[in-house]
Design a protein around this nucleic acid. Structure first.
Length: 294
DNA sequence: CACTTGACCTGTCCGC
DNA sequence: TGCGGACAGGTCAAGT
């Protein structure tokens, strides 16, 4: 769902509209989405200006004049921005998926000094927006433990290999999904990059030769960049900060293509379970290598 | 240590 | 038509 390309797309949209705005009021109806405590919010959020918007892995970080907001959309979270003058509650002709804002999945609303609004929607209520001070954010374990950032210059093949080999006894798909190894890959892009590099997702890391590791590294980059160019994947309800869907899934090779032909060899794509996740593979292109251990 | 399961939630789909 | 259950998949905590 929102994985790196989707969060990157939201980030690119939000940074254009949020920076320099001041938070005038907030509303929430679900404590786990955004804290209720009025005094706490008044002291730590209201009246603060947005200095910077950043992305780290699948998280968004909003730097306020004093504090920080860290946002995780989990599976069904949305962040939708509406400028002043938008017909709140009345829908919008350019929306490809959502219309009325707020809708029944809206659990937090930020109103800015110019009357524009940011809506945090989350059908399944797994996502969250947390407030940190400059001190407390340094102790936020989740952020601290995130691994390599695929779009940063230090995502080199050598660093990639080094990080993976720390988990050489684990299955490659589980390692790709481990945010402390590489930050930002979820179920869609794990399946897609393993197909592109012809690696079976259940292969133990130690059984992948250097050539395939190299292909995996470049496949991850290619696929993440392609998806960002397509505005991400709208599997269920992902939309960008303007409420529009992404089109990557029109170009996907295995994800959600069970029963369809592999674009390389024509074999039917199958869905299996690896690392207790639904996993899509081409059974012909992605053969499980099972080296004898001795 | 790797790995699984359950929890957090709601909407959709499938079989009866 | 509706009802129960499986499933969707990001992360954490607890158990094997």
């Amino acid at each position: 769902m929102p994985e790196l390309p989707e969060v990157e797309t939201i980030y690119l949209g939000l940074k254009e509209v949020l920076v320099e705005k001041t938070i005038r009021s907030v509303w929430s109806d679900w404590e786990k989405s955004f804290p209720y405590d009025k005094n706490f919010i008044k002291e730590n959020v209201l009246g603060q200006k947005i200095n910077l918007v950043k992305r780290r892995g699948k998280s968004l970080i909003i730097e306020l004049s004093k504090n920080y907001l860290v946002i995780h959309l989990k599976m069904t979270g949305q962040l939708i921005y509406r400028s002043n003058g938008y017909n709140f509650g009345g829908g919008h002709p350019n929306d490809s998926l959502i219309g009325k804002m707020p809708d029944k999945t809206t659990h937090a609303i930020f109103t800015f000094n110019d009357n524009s609004k940011l809506f945090f929607n989350d059908q399944r209520k797994f996502g969250w927006i947390k407030i940190f001070t400059p001190d407390s954010i340094k102790e936020f374990k989740f952020l601290n433990q995130l691994g390599l950032e695929p779009l940063e210059p230090n995502f080199t093949f050598l660093n990639f290999k080094k990080s993976l080999l720390k988990h050489s006894k684990a299955r490659i798909k589980a390692v790709l999904l481990d945010q402390t190894v590489i930050a930002g890959i979820g179920n869609i892009y794990a399946d897609e990059s393993l197909w592109m590099s012809r690696i079976h997702p259940a292969t133990l890391v130690s059984n992948i030769d250097s050539q395939h590791l190299k292909m995996l590294h470049s496949s991850i980059l290619k696929i993440l960049r392609l998806s960002i160019n397509k505005g991400g994947s709208s599997d269920r309800n992902y939309v960008n900060s303007s409420g529009q869907k992404g089109s990557y899934l029109e170009f996907s090779n295995v994800y959600k293509r069970t029963g369809l032909k592999c674009k390389r060899c024509g074999t039917a794509i199958i869905k299996i379970r690896v690392a207790s996740r639904g996993t899509h593979i081409c059974p012909n292109c992605q053969k499980l290598i099972n080296k004898k251990q001795h």
